Simulated assay, not measured.
Amino acid sequence: MDLLGAAANVRDRAVAGHLADLRRMPREVIDSSPSATLYRYLPLEGSHPSSDPGRLPVLLVPPLGAPDFAYDLRRGCSLVEHLLTAGRDVYLVDYGNISFAERGLGIEFWVENVVPRAVHRVSEYRGGAPVHLVGWCLGGIFSLLSAADRANLPAHTVTAIASPFDVSAVPLVAPLRPLAAITGGRLVSSAYQALGSIPAPMVKWAFQLSTVDKYLTKPLTVLSRLDDRDVLEQIEAVDYLMSHMHGYPGRTFGQIYHLMLRSNDLADGGLDLGGRRIALAEVRVPVLVVAGENDVIAPLRAVRRGAQLLTGSPEVRFESAPGGHLGVLTGRRARGTTWTCLDGFLDTHDKSA
């Protein structure tokens, strides 16, 4: 260990109270509704992406539960910062905190309303340009279902990162499926119906449970890597994200539980939402699917199933990269793996617009 480096990190943490630069990339509101806010990130100095018609805009679609700044975790390890540095025009739709009053909202609300509205607004803002959608976890599923549901959606490509399509391949969920089948899902249904929503602390606890080994060994990791500022900054940034998790509407959680966990409908090709079936085979745009090699929430087989179901897409790329559920999106190694794959995919399809 570099003792001087470790001492400097301890000193800086003691003086400033933190090591990671958690300032968010500057952004402006371009559309707002009671259900979501659409942001445009301000271009970096000297960069004017909207003046280059060859570079299509990118819309980031977050999942429920995680804060929108998962895409902008910290300076030096921010997907937003990376895309802006590459000269891209970057947008994000933010759902905000989910309140008890929104307990009746289902998956179809985001698939039929929130995501399509954001895509159309970005396209209009850019003079009718088609839009690259990039979604993490449930955000990737929202994006694909929206593209499948609306043939006129101005989506040019969709990227789904760490999106689980086959929950039978998820180790944490698989043991629960037989129990759910025996009880008919009544135990869990009673719980979320009584609560009305899944509170943020429960979402945080579930996320931590999936990486319990890392949380138990975190103190040892910090002590052994005191001289590695990048590691310490990442741990600090992830802790901050975990302390800002959001809740789930009760109805959405119920759909995830009954349609995806119990029945595993998505692995069969689609979901029944709002009285009709939305099939992934109806996606007609190129798709990039990325799986984390160490992801226990959305393991490789669960994510790869999505790529197999996109039979109507003109191109489906499947890639794997090191990292867990969050790490594959914005871990330290994602800078040279996931982000590189994304860059190549977007660059290729910019040219085909």
Rank of each mutant, 00 (worst) to 15 (best):
R117M: 01
V134P: 03
L22I: 00
R75N: 10
R121F: 00
G135T: 00
V58R: 10
K204L: 08
F345E: 09
V10E: 10
L259D: 11
A279M: 08
D265E: 14
V122W: 11
A321L: 02
W205Y: 07
R335F: 12
G106M: 05
Q208A: 06
L144K: 06
D94T: 05
R305D: 06
A279I: 00
R27S: 11
H18G: 07
P49N: 15
T337D: 15
L44F: 07
V290G: 15
L60K: 03
D230K: 12
Q255F: 03
L83C: 06
P26I: 00
A174I: 03
Y248D: 02
G269F: 05
D227G: 08
G250S: 11
P175A: 11
H132W: 10
A151H: 04
R121C: 01
L144N: 02
G17Q: 06
R24A: 09
V10T: 09
L138N: 04
Q208C: 03
L266I: 00
P57I: 12
A200F: 07
A181D: 12
G324K: 07
I278P: 01
L73N: 09
T338N: 13
S197T: 10
A36V: 05
A129D: 04
P314F: 01
V134A: 15
A206P: 00
L64Q: 06
V296C: 08
T252F: 15
V29M: 09
H18N: 05
T157I: 07
Y125R: 15
Y248E: 04
A36Y: 08
G185Y: 09
P199C: 08
S143T: 01
G250F: 12
L133A: 04
R284C: 04
A162Y: 08
H48Y: 06
A302S: 15
I107K: 02
L309S: 05
R23S: 14
V238Q: 08
H18W: 10
S35C: 02
L266T: 00
D265F: 01
A200G: 10
